[in-house]
Design a protein around this nucleic acid. Structure first.
Lengths: 100, 100
DNA sequence: CTGCATCCGGAATGATACTG
DNA sequence: CAGTATCATTCCGGATGCAG
C-alpha cells in the first residue's frame, strides 16, 4: 500500500500548510524560542501565532516547555524536526539564483 | 550573505505556499496534464485551479503547452521540477507511520 | 512585561452557475 | 473542455484589551 505520496502530501499540508506554520517551525529549528521572540523575529500577528502554536501542538510538531517560573518556551518535537529536510529544500528552491 | 533560509523559505511560500499549489505541482510531476484531468484527480474547485495555474505560470513554475490542435495541457518547467525533492520530503513526512 | 484572547475589515477559498 | 462570474464562508492581519 504505497500511499504514493498524494495522500501523504495532502496530510502534511493539512498540518503544516497554513500560513506562517513552516516559518515558525523553521525558526524553532535553531532551538527553542519564546512567544515574544517568535513574534518579533518573524513579524507574525499575535493572534495568528497563538493559533498556529496551538494547532502545531495538537499535531505533535511543537511542545510547550517551561523554563524558569513565569517563563516558557516552544520547542520542536522529533516529529517536528522531521520537517528539517523539506524546509531546507523549500528554502534552497526559494533563494534567488546565484551564479558562481 | 548566506540568505540562510528564512528569506528563501518565505520567498518559496509566496510562490507555492497557497492552497492546492503544491498538490497541483505534485500531480504535474507525473507528466503534463490537462485542465479537466487536474480538476478531477485533485478535486480542486475550478476557480481556484484557474487562479493557481495563472499564478504558477507567472512564477515560472508551470507552462501551458499545446498538444494537438484544440487540445492543450499544463507542464512543469525546470524550475517547477526543482520542487520534486521538497514535495517528496513533505509527502513522506505526512504519510501515516506504518508498523509491519 | 509576557502570553495570549477578542473584535473587525479585508483577502483568500469554496460551491455553483454560466459562457465561448 | 476550459475556463469566467458570482456569492457565501472561512482565513488572515492589525489593533486593542486583559490576565498572570
Amino acid at each position: 500500500m504505497t500511499a504514493g505520496g498524494r495522500g501523504g502530501l495532502a496530510a502534511a499540508l493539512e498540518q503544516v500548510g497554513q500560513r506562517w506554520a513552516l516559518l515558525v517551525i523553521a525558526e524553532l529549528l535553531d532551538g527553542a524560542q519564546r512567544y515574544g521572540d517568535l513574534q518579533r523575529s518573524l513579524g507574525v500577528p499575535t493572534n495568528i501565532l497563538a493559533t498556529r502554536l496551538k494547532e502545531l501542538q495538537e499535531a505533535g510538531v511543537v511542545v510547550r516547555v517551561p523554563m524558569s517560573h513565569n517563563v516558557l518556551a516552544y520547542e520542536l518535537t522529533d516529529r517536528g524536526r522531521g520537517l528539517a529536510g523539506a524546509i531546507a529544500e523549500l528554502a534552497r528552491w526559494g533563494e534567488p539564483a546565484e551564479q558562481p
